[in-house]
Amino acid sequence: MARSQQTFNKIEKEKARLKKREEKQKKKEARKAEQKSSSKGIQFAYVDAYGNLTDTPPNPEDKIKVDASSIEIGIPKKEDSDIEEVDPVRKGKVSFFDNSKGFGFIIDSENQEKYFCHVSGLIDQIAENDKVSFELERGMKGMNAVKVTLI
Protein backbone atom coordinates (compact mmCIF):
# COMPACT_ATOMS: atom_id res chain seq x y z
CA MET A 1 0.00 0.00 0.00
CA ALA A 2 1.51 3.31 -1.13
CA ARG A 3 1.38 6.55 0.80
CA SER A 4 -0.26 9.66 -0.54
CA GLN A 5 1.99 11.93 -2.61
CA GLN A 6 0.40 15.05 -1.10
CA THR A 7 2.51 16.36 1.76
CA PHE A 8 1.64 19.12 4.18
CA ASN A 9 4.25 21.42 2.64
CA LYS A 10 2.90 20.94 -0.91
CA ILE A 11 -0.63 21.70 0.25
CA GLU A 12 0.48 24.92 2.00
CA LYS A 13 2.42 26.08 -1.05
CA GLU A 14 -0.61 25.48 -3.27
CA LYS A 15 -2.84 27.48 -0.89
CA ALA A 16 -0.36 30.39 -0.86
CA ARG A 17 -0.14 30.37 -4.65
CA LEU A 18 -3.93 30.44 -5.05
CA LYS A 19 -4.25 33.24 -2.46
CA LYS A 20 -1.62 35.32 -4.28
CA ARG A 21 -3.44 34.79 -7.59
CA GLU A 22 -6.76 35.94 -6.07
CA GLU A 23 -5.14 39.10 -4.59
CA LYS A 24 -3.60 39.93 -7.94
CA GLN A 25 -6.98 39.52 -9.66
CA LYS A 26 -8.66 41.79 -7.08
CA LYS A 27 -6.01 44.51 -7.58
CA LYS A 28 -6.46 44.28 -11.35
CA GLU A 29 -10.23 44.73 -11.05
CA ALA A 30 -9.78 47.64 -8.61
CA ARG A 31 -7.46 49.41 -11.09
CA LYS A 32 -9.96 48.93 -13.91
CA ALA A 33 -12.79 50.34 -11.79
CA GLU A 34 -10.65 53.32 -10.71
CA GLN A 35 -9.67 54.02 -14.32
CA LYS A 36 -13.32 54.06 -15.44
CA SER A 37 -14.40 56.38 -12.62
CA SER A 38 -11.58 58.90 -13.15
CA SER A 39 -11.70 59.25 -16.93
CA LYS A 40 -10.85 62.96 -17.07
CA GLY A 41 -8.81 62.48 -20.22
CA ILE A 42 -5.13 62.98 -20.83
CA GLN A 43 -3.36 65.17 -18.32
CA PHE A 44 -0.89 67.68 -19.76
CA ALA A 45 2.26 69.22 -18.38
CA TYR A 46 3.49 72.50 -19.80
CA VAL A 47 6.91 74.11 -19.61
CA ASP A 48 6.97 77.77 -18.59
CA ALA A 49 9.48 80.43 -19.73
CA TYR A 50 11.91 79.44 -16.95
CA GLY A 51 11.92 75.73 -17.81
CA ASN A 52 9.66 74.63 -14.94
CA LEU A 53 6.77 72.16 -15.40
CA THR A 54 3.30 73.60 -14.79
CA ASP A 55 -0.28 72.48 -15.30
CA THR A 56 -1.41 75.78 -16.85
CA PRO A 57 -0.88 76.39 -20.57
CA PRO A 58 1.43 79.26 -21.57
CA ASN A 59 0.00 82.61 -22.59
CA PRO A 60 0.17 82.89 -26.41
CA GLU A 61 0.72 86.67 -26.14
CA ASP A 62 4.05 86.07 -24.35
CA LYS A 63 5.42 84.15 -27.34
CA ILE A 64 8.49 85.70 -28.97
CA LYS A 65 8.62 85.76 -32.76
CA VAL A 66 12.09 84.77 -34.06
CA ASP A 67 13.16 85.30 -37.65
CA ALA A 68 14.71 82.06 -38.91
CA SER A 69 17.17 83.89 -41.18
CA SER A 70 18.68 85.71 -38.17
CA ILE A 71 19.84 82.44 -36.57
CA GLU A 72 23.52 81.76 -37.21
CA ILE A 73 24.57 78.14 -37.24
CA GLY A 74 28.24 77.52 -36.51
CA ILE A 75 31.01 79.86 -35.55
CA PRO A 76 30.43 83.51 -36.46
CA LYS A 77 32.90 84.91 -38.97
CA LYS A 78 35.48 87.37 -37.66
CA GLU A 79 35.36 90.84 -39.08
CA ASP A 80 38.44 92.74 -40.21
CA SER A 81 38.37 94.92 -37.09
CA ASP A 82 38.58 91.79 -34.87
CA ILE A 83 41.68 90.42 -36.60
CA GLU A 84 44.91 91.80 -35.25
CA GLU A 85 47.93 92.02 -37.49
CA VAL A 86 50.35 89.62 -35.83
CA ASP A 87 53.82 89.17 -37.26
CA PRO A 88 54.29 85.42 -37.78
CA VAL A 89 58.09 85.75 -37.69
CA ARG A 90 59.48 85.27 -34.18
CA LYS A 91 62.96 85.71 -32.80
CA GLY A 92 64.80 83.38 -30.46
CA LYS A 93 67.98 81.61 -29.46
CA VAL A 94 69.05 78.04 -30.24
CA SER A 95 69.31 76.24 -26.90
CA PHE A 96 70.30 72.83 -28.32
CA PHE A 97 70.96 71.44 -31.79
CA ASP A 98 72.41 68.05 -32.77
CA ASN A 99 73.61 67.99 -36.40
CA SER A 100 74.11 64.22 -36.44
CA LYS A 101 70.49 63.55 -35.44
CA GLY A 102 69.04 66.58 -37.22
CA PHE A 103 66.94 68.21 -34.52
CA GLY A 104 67.14 70.76 -31.74
CA PHE A 105 65.23 73.30 -29.67
CA ILE A 106 64.77 77.05 -29.94
CA ILE A 107 63.76 79.29 -27.03
CA ASP A 108 61.43 82.15 -28.04
CA SER A 109 62.75 85.53 -26.83
CA GLU A 110 59.22 86.90 -26.15
CA ASN A 111 57.62 84.21 -24.01
CA GLN A 112 60.58 81.90 -23.22
CA GLU A 113 58.73 78.92 -24.73
CA LYS A 114 60.83 76.06 -26.07
CA TYR A 115 59.99 74.90 -29.61
CA PHE A 116 61.16 71.78 -31.45
CA CYS A 117 63.17 72.36 -34.63
CA HIS A 118 63.94 69.72 -37.29
CA VAL A 119 66.64 69.95 -39.94
CA SER A 120 63.91 69.92 -42.65
CA GLY A 121 62.65 73.27 -41.30
CA LEU A 122 66.02 75.02 -41.58
CA ILE A 123 66.94 77.58 -44.24
CA ASP A 124 70.44 78.36 -42.81
CA GLN A 125 72.80 76.10 -40.88
CA ILE A 126 72.47 76.75 -37.14
CA ALA A 127 74.43 75.88 -34.01
CA GLU A 128 73.88 76.28 -30.26
CA ASN A 129 73.52 79.87 -28.92
CA ASP A 130 72.79 81.33 -32.40
CA LYS A 131 70.20 84.11 -32.68
CA VAL A 132 67.55 83.03 -35.17
CA SER A 133 64.19 84.07 -36.59
CA PHE A 134 61.52 81.43 -37.20
CA GLU A 135 57.84 80.77 -37.79
CA LEU A 136 55.63 78.34 -35.89
CA GLU A 137 53.73 75.41 -37.32
CA ARG A 138 51.56 72.86 -35.51
CA GLY A 139 53.21 69.45 -35.38
CA MET A 140 52.09 66.09 -34.02
CA LYS A 141 53.27 66.80 -30.47
CA GLY A 142 52.98 70.59 -30.35
CA MET A 143 54.33 73.66 -32.07
CA ASN A 144 57.42 73.29 -34.27
CA ALA A 145 59.83 75.99 -35.47
CA VAL A 146 60.05 76.17 -39.29
CA LYS A 147 61.70 78.51 -41.79
CA VAL A 148 64.57 79.02 -39.34
CA THR A 149 67.14 81.62 -40.47
CA LEU A 150 70.16 83.22 -38.78
CA ILE A 151 69.93 86.86 -37.72
Rank of each mutant, 00 (worst) to 15 (best):
M1C: 10
M1Q: 14
R3V: 03
S4N: 13
Q5I: 03
Q5N: 10
Q6E: 10
Q6R: 03
F8W: 04
N9W: 07
K10L: 08
I11M: 09
I11D: 06
A16F: 03
L18S: 03
R21P: 00
R21I: 00
E22A: 10
E22T: 01
K24V: 01
K26V: 09
K26T: 04
K27C: 01
K27S: 02
K28F: 02
K28G: 02
E29V: 07
A30W: 02
K32Q: 08
A33W: 01
E34S: 11
S37K: 12
S37H: 10
K40T: 14
A45L: 14
V47L: 14
D48S: 09
D48L: 07
Y50L: 07
G51H: 06
L53T: 13
L53M: 15
T54Y: 08
P60E: 01
P60D: 04
P60T: 01
E61T: 03
D62K: 06
D62Q: 05
I64D: 04
G74P: 04
G74E: 05
K77C: 03
K77G: 02
K77N: 07
D82F: 02
E84G: 10
V86P: 11
D87E: 15
R90P: 04
K91V: 15
G92A: 04
K93P: 00
K93D: 06
S95K: 15
F96Y: 10
F96P: 02
F96Q: 11
F97L: 02
N99V: 15
S100W: 02
K101E: 02
G102L: 04
I106N: 05
D108K: 12
E110F: 13
N111A: 08
Q112K: 11
E113Q: 15
E113I: 08
K114F: 07
K114A: 12
C117L: 05
V119W: 09
G121E: 12
L122Y: 06
L122I: 11
L122W: 05
Q125L: 12
A127R: 13
A127K: 15
A127D: 12
N129M: 06
S133T: 15
F134E: 01
E135C: 10
L136C: 09
G139L: 15
G139H: 12
M143G: 02
V148S: 13
T149M: 13
I151A: 12
I151S: 13
